[in-house]
Design a protein around this nucleic acid. Sequence first.
DNA 1: TAGATTGTTAATCGATTAACAATC
DNA 2: TAGATTGTTAATCGATTAACAATC
Lengths: 212, 212
Amino acid sequence: MADKQVPLVVIRRLPRYHRYLGELLNNKIYRVSSTELSEKMGVTASQIRQDLNCFGGFGQQGYGYNVEMLYDSITKILGLDKGYKTIIIGAGNLGKALANYAGFEKRGFKLCAVFDNNKDVIGKTIAGCKVLAYADAQGFIEKEKPDIAILAVPKLAVTKVADDMVKFGIKALWNFAYVDLDLPGDVLVENVHLSDSLMTLSYRMNELGDNK
Amino acid sequence: MADKQVPLVVIRRLPRYHRYLGELLNNKIYRVSSTELSEKMGVTASQIRQDLNCFGGFGQQGYGYNVEMLYDSITKILGLDKGYKTIIIGAGNLGKALANYAGFEKRGFKLCAVFDNNKDVIGKTIAGCKVLAYADAQGFIEKEKPDIAILAVPKLAVTKVADDMVKFGIKALWNFAYVDLDLPGDVLVENVHLSDSLMTLSYRMNELGDNK
DNA sequence: TAGATTGTTAATCGATTAACAATC
DNA sequence: TAGATTGTTAATCGATTAACAATC
């Protein structure tokens, strides 16, 4: 298993391949060449073949790729068949939005609890999950051993919450607060910095205005 | 103004510089060298100097950078001083979460309306904005000329909504639905594909498990 | 002036694209 | 077999890092 490490840029493209292949399946298309796929996705066929070959030879010369087989392979590569258990910290609008996001369930993630420390929401039900008191998080996590904690708490709270999560044994964090968390090297962190994305858009608008 | 185009990778790093410089200002630190900043941010000093020099010589030999001046410059480069007007389409949990996201207001974006087509929410107030009927969007947009439409609608609705937005004159879309929009070349689109981010995290977890 | 640190050029590294032999 | 299309190597392109002369 000591394959040379797959570059992060390639990994970040896998979900997109997964999505397009899923759409092909929905349309009952069971065979695709790298050229056809490249036209749909707006990337080069070369890149598709290079990317896929980081993980093995999924295609067949003269034929192309079997969509179903490739889709299933990428599902496995991404770990979407593992049924990773998630918890959400923060039952505000963002936490609620994420809890109800159909896409996660569909991709094999299992939401098993939502935590908050606001008495007004504790005990309510979100996306079929009772909201639990944050004070009970440690017990819950040590017992249920969820895989991923989704941090939907305010910026000011997130550093402490992240430290708690690590202490309680969580190994992967999906962080929505606008902070770069500083955690032990064996804890995985994926940040969603929404402001960064909006500012990038803003830059591009601004640039258009400038270069007339 | 025909500078050679700044690479997108550099642009995507600007918000992060902006954030760290803002934090320095909060801590009343008014001078910083590329080396100091590089240690804080976990990037190379070389990269910082290269990136900044895409936009001009902000530093001074033997001294470093004036934090306030650099922060203000990046604010302008990102267009955060323009007060871009935004509207949100979709008053569900995600729309609400985005409307209440303090970060946007703080970065100069002005939310001027929220639209939905659900009678139960039309007329209610979110983040100080009345929710308007989607049917009234065209009139509103033609009159108020917002700059950015934030698409917080379900996947199935987003293609039509995006086409509408373009027809009504919007030139920049911030899209949260898990779809790649196909729009005229002069319309800017920034996607936030949350699933992609979560799947990347999932891949990395899975990878750790495999390579033991 | 001496020390510090930039701006910038050159060297390295990595990612993308092109080309084509292998092979279904 | 002939045609198609992959897997893979080689060429190109771009981004990052290193080095250092310029200069505050």
